[in-house]
Nucleic acid binder design. Structure first.
Length: 880
RNA sequence: GCGGACGUGGCGAAAAGGUAGACGCAGCAGACUUAAAAUCUGCUCCGGGCAACCGGGUGCGGGUUCGAAUCCCGCCGUCCGCACCA
């Protein structure tokens, strides 16, 4: 066994040494990259300030959680942002491109418990590591604006915001449900609940009601929904997801009296038209009436307790088996007092939505139908499909949810669904049994967290004065450092002295709030702080007015709803509190895909890092123990499955530019990217080819600025056309976030330069000048993608100043124009020939030329075509 | 369960409704080399044919159109989100 391990590590060392030798003999990225990073830093090129006369561009990538090390998923995001930032800068914009750390959060506390390291230390070490990694990548950040949300100078401002929200009625206290681990006596995050059990204790998780702080995001519901339409530079799918999340539905509140009791059940429904198909009413287990009934019905109390032995996540609730408990009560139909339906308590009814109670119409709702079948409740169809006969229409296993004509419904008979909704609503209103209303899925945002590593909520509880805000002069309420993590639960609550304070109002003994704020609170305004990161205020008004909104925001689609919705709300809430005058923080949004990698398991079933897997001489995969490896599926990179690629190894081996170009070139940015070792080697070969073209050009280059003069051979004219077409196409691709295509076009131009035959230079004095134009163009176009290599190319070409300070090239449309076009000729939709024509030839001429082609004549076989369609410069379509 | 997306060669992909597979990766053959690496050249969607060429082909089944990867309808599969992970 020992020797096996030794052999494996010898292979590994051998491979790295071999790679290293290969690398050192060529383009020296090590020296080049550190050199240019130093130059940019020393000249403070990326430190910017507001310049009112100059057009601004705010480029922002979602700031990272400092989890330890940067992975290629982060780097893909930041590479795209840097590309745009450098491109806009070259176009003459004053570009703000900041970076910071979303530094509060659960993993720091987990590390504290697992590795016995304080969250402060762990976080700061991780930030230092990750900052160094970002610097090595050569990203053009304004580091003078770096922020970390765990810094008191950052969170003091959000404590002030919280107090302002409180004063404005946008923050309030309410009871809400949490996941409770009965063994550890700790509140669990949804992520910490695995199959209904606590991740550490394994105990079955319970729901508990806790008094917590919430933000009134619902005060802005309509605005947040309506303004989505104006976000025309957001992906359609993200706007759709937010729209669905807000979940506006028009319907009605309907009141059911409980037979024989002085009790009324209010339900919300979007299907008031199906009122005559009702066969039950169902209450949420946490509905007040259900709670009251449970007091005298132990069986119901058990059922409710069982419903509460389940996490709070909607996915869990919705996928659980639908179950109900028959209370024995009967609800009186609101329109027809002679009808009665049974009242159930059901586990699928959410207290948070609508009225916490529903009526069930099994014929026209699938979930109600399944419930009705399970508890043998009647299924009464009331909407008749267009071609069905009322006498024979029945419901089987599928509810009918489409439009149709109402029947079995008294005064609604004969109406369409839409008309019946209106008529039913009117009748309910007229008899005082309900009213039409709009319900939203969106709930207020609970921001209290029973955790240490977050921003303290600046309030004090006084037995005399009640809830008292901490006076502004006493902010920030700083997190104490001397805490222990041995006792489960919130260390702040266990701290011997921290929470004991004087009441700011009456000076009597009082207690601090020991909950901290949700970390989404931290990230809901960081983009504003970046506008003036060292200001004594949260942000300077003028700076925010100049820089905001963010022109281009880039991040993972996993933030499509929560972070983006909260930030949109925050911007409005802050505007309402007088901080600024803005509704939408992000004018442009792009959501990039994940980075994936194949997974590997050893013979004993343990996950293996890709680095630990080698190929033996027969090409089989073997692990560090010398035994065969099982190659698994390609998945999103995650620490738990070890399918991560360390950034440092990549940058050490190939350099930052190669990594950057690979991340841009391989897949469209919005799609997932498969990380492959061979792919990055291909980029490395390309880097060397480009560098060779510049360092050893095929002919001596004329001095910079030499005009292209004289007659050019056709190949050189073609190269010149390629140069200008590439400039135009790459610019267009960058505008549309088609980075992989932009890279492909630059590679095509590189191929064109390499393919230029030597003799093309011999006959013309202008040809070397065109070669120079091509190489300079390559450097300029590659600049935002591979800034170090491009800067080195620019210097080797003798360009003036730094490449970063050069303007973006502009295509000459005359030079880009090709006078010949290839036209496809189709017969009955199949390609049969092609035709070379001068550009913009008359359709008649193209048509007759196409009909004269021998291939066409053969297919027509002497018959005249029935129809000919000519699309200029593209295609001739012949119908035979 | 609900909501959102995606599906094209061996692989990543490209294609204003107009020549499907640009640009790469991998593979094969060749050049250089004592040899290897590096580099360079050529080939590579599938089937048939010596070839010119012919037939088929963008998850599956239909439809619209002179023409569909692209638009419409229905299925299948995969991925993401679901409010305390960030």
């Amino acid at each position: 066994m020992l020797s096996g391990g030794g052999a494996a590590s010898r292979i590994q060392t051998g491979r790295i040494a071999e790679r290293f030798a290969r690398v050192m003999s060529r383009y020296n990225f090590r020296e080049t990259e550190t050199k240019w990073q130093r130059v940019w830093r020393e000249r403070r090129l990326f430190e910017v300030s507001a310049k009112p006369g100059m057009p601004k561009y705010y480029m922002l990538e979602m700031f990272p959680y400092p989890s330890g090390k940067l992975h290629v998923g982060h780097v893909r995001n930041y590479t795209m942002g840097d590309l745009i930032a450098r491109y806009r800068r070259a176009q003459g914009f004053n570009v703000l491109h900041p970076m910071g750390w979303d530094a509060f959060g659960l993993p720091a506390e987990n590390a504290a418990m697992a590795e016995n390291v304080h969250p402060v230390v762990w976080t700061h070490q991780n930030i230092a590591t990750m900052r160094a990694q970002l610097e090595r990548m050569g990203f053009a950040y304004d580091w003078s604006r770096e922020i970390a949300t765990c810094h008191p100078e950052y969170y003091r401002h959000q404590q002030k915001m919280f107090l302002d929200f409180l004063a404005a009625g946008l923050a309030y206290r309410r009871e809400s449900w949490v996941n409770w681990d009965p063994v550890e006596h700790t509140v669990l995050a949804n992520e910490q609940v695995v199959d209904g059990c606590g991740w550490r204790s394994g105990a079955i998780v319970e729901k508990r009601l806790l008094a917590q702080w919430a933000l009134r995001i619902t005060a802005f519901t309509e605005e947040l929904l309506d303004a989505l339409r104006g976000l025309d530079r957001w992906p359609e799918r993200v706007r759709l997801m937010q729209e669905k999340w807000i979940g506006r539905s028009e319907g009605a509140r309907v009141f059911f009296d409980v037979a024989g009791r002085d009790e009324r059940i209010e339900v919300f429904t979007t299907r008031q038209d199906t009122l005559f198909g009702a066969s039950f009413v169902a209450l949420s287990p946490n509905h007040p009436l259900a709670q009251r009934l449970a007091g005298s019905d132990p069986e119901l109390a058990d059922f409710i307790a069982e419903c509460n032995r389940m996490g709070t996540s909607e996915a869990v609730i919705e996928t659980a088996e639908k179950r109900g408990y028959k209370t024995g009560l009967e609800a009186v139909h609101p329109v027809d007092p002679n009808r009665r339906v049974p009242v159930y308590v059901a586990n699928f009814v959410l207290m948070e939505y609508g009225a916490g109670a529903v009526f069930g119409c099994p014929a026209h709702d699938q979930r109600d139908l399944e419930f009705a079948r399970k508890y043998q409740l009647p299924v009464i169809p009331v909407v008749l499909p267009p071609d069905a006969s009322p006498a024979h229409f029945t419901i089987g296993e599928t509810a009918y949810t489409e439009d149709g004509t109402l029947f079995n419904s008294e005064f609604l008979d004969g109406l369409s669904v839409a008309d019946a909704k209106r008529a039913a609503g009117e009748r309910l209103e007229a008899i005082g049994r309900g009213e039409r209303t709009i319900a939203y899925r969106l709930r207020d945002w609970g921001v209290s967290r029973q955790r240490y590593w977050g921003c303290p909520i600046p309030v004090v509880y006084c037995p005399v004065c009640g809830v008292v805000p901490v006076p502004e002069a006493e902010l920030p309420v700083e997190l104490p450092i001397d805490v222990g993590f041995d006792t489960p639960g919130n260390p702040l609550a266990h701290h011997p002295s921290w929470k004991h304070v004087e009441c700011p109002r009456c000076r009597g003994p009082a207690e601090r709030e020991t909950d901290t704020l949700d970390t989404f609170f931290d990230s809901s305004w960081y983009f504003l702080r970046f506008c003036s990161a060292r200001d004594a205020r949260a942000f300077a008004g003028e700076a925010a007015a100049y820089w905001m909104p963010v022109d281009q925001y880039i991040g993972g689609v996993e933030h499509a709803i929560l972070h983006l919705l909260y930030s949109r709300f925050f911007t409005r809430a802050l505007s309402q509190c007088g901080y600024l005058d803005l509704d939408e923080p992000f004018a442009g949004l792009f959501t990039q895909g994940m980075v994936c990698h194949q997974t590997y398991r050893s013979a004993s079933g343990d996950w293996l890092f890709p680095d630990e897997v080698e190929r033996d001489p027969d090409g089989r995969l073997i692990g560090p123990d010398g035994r065969p490896v099982i190659a698994g599926r390609h998945e999103k990179m995650s620490k738990s499955k070890k399918n991560v690629v360390g950034l440092d190894t990549i940058v050490d081996t190939y350099g930052a530019d190669t990594a950057r170009l690979y991340l841009l070139s391989d897949s469209p940015p919005e799609r997932d990217l498969e990380w492959t070792e061979t792919g990055i080697e291909g980029i490395w070969r390309y880097v060397n080819r480009v560098w060779r073209l510049v360092s050893e050009p095929p002919v001596a280059l004329p001095p910079p600025g030499t005009a292209v003069a004289g007659e050019l051979p056709p190949e050189v004219v073609g190269l010149r056309r390629a140069i200008h077409r590439t400039i135009a196409a790459v610019s267009d691709d960058l505008e549309k976030f088609r980075f992989n295509r932009a890279v492909a076009r630059i590679r095509e131009l590189t191929n064109s330069v390499e393919e230029l035959p030597q003799h093309a230079f011999g006959t013309s004095t202008g040809a070397p000048a065109v070669l120079r134009e091509a190489l300079e163009t390559l450097a300029r176009l590659l600049g935002p993608m591979m800034p170090h290599l491009a800067e080195e190319m620019w210097q080797a070409l003798g360009g003036a100043g730094l490449l970063v300070e050069q303007p973006w090239p502009v295509a000459d449309s005359q030079l880009a124009r090709d006078e010949q076009v290839t036209i496809a000729v189709q017969i009955n939709g199949k390609l049969r020939a092609t035709l070379e024509c001068p550009r913009d030839s008359a359709s008649g001429a193209v048509e007759s030329a196409a009909l004269r082609l021998p291939q066409v004549a053969r297919w027509l076989d002497g018959r005249p075509p029935r129809k000919v369609i000519v699309v200029p410069n593209r295609i001739v379509s012949i119908v035979a």
